[in-house]
Design a protein around this nucleic acid. Sequence first.
DNA 1: ATCGGTGTATTAAGCGATTAATACATATTT
DNA 2: AAATATGTATTAATCGCTTAATACACCGAT
Lengths: 125, 125
Amino acid sequence: MNIQFNNRDPVYVQVVRYFKNQIAKGFLEPGQAIPSRRELANQLKINPNTAQRAYKEMEEEGLIKTEKNQPSRVTSDENVLQDLRDELIVQAVSEFVSSVKSINVSLDEALNLVKQKYEKGDSDD
Amino acid sequence: MNIQFNNRDPVYVQVVRYFKNQIAKGFLEPGQAIPSRRELANQLKINPNTAQRAYKEMEEEGLIKTEKNQPSRVTSDENVLQDLRDELIVQAVSEFVSSVKSINVSLDEALNLVKQKYEKGDSDD
DNA sequence: ATCGGTGTATTAAGCGATTAATACATATTT
DNA sequence: AAATATGTATTAATCGCTTAATACACCGAT
């Protein structure tokens, strides 16, 4: 558990993003327990309410499930998990294509650039 | 001149983005005059200071040049114009590759998705 | 039953950034 | 020279959102 916070985006957004990526990668598996609000807050040195805010977002999106007096768990609904990954991808693709199109970058050019960047890429995982 | 404002990003940012795209596409050519602050404000129904803010950003980036009592003009510096387009592209590519990598999307998959989206794409130009 | 842990709700505080109001100096035009 | 239009600077108001403070209800273990 180690999040590199920037001071650009809200903390709770960054926390959500972190968990989404972890889930999408499969590092967090279906049904797996995640830390309590207060514990997460301690680990990350953030306010418990901020942790709660993040968990609430994920709860509303169906990513995690919470039962009384049990640790919240990653949903076991495979559809949701599949959808999550898909949504992240679709969003990334949409933004990218929209951007390059708006400045008249050809498809070939775009593909080449992606390929180069991907292969060369400073891995940030 | 027609900008579709969202209420997500600051107005001046959206104005800058609009002009950048126009320039990157070549719709605004080197040396071409652009509206005065107040005129732009009238057309877009925004506060003159917001227009000024946008122009100031562009001025600082070297995209436009302003001489006393003359309309601001798109820079004639071809280098700047080339750099602009390059920067927009690099930024888009970086964000995209970073996103897909963070959720373990393979290069091939990414390329395919871009291709599909690009070709199918609802043109937003 | 008491204590410590949990999730949750409500409310307030704080902060940052955007937008707006206003004024000033200059230049061109009538 | 008066009027109008320009760019610019300074300051204030506004607004939204994030974060924090606090309290409540629940449960399990001691």
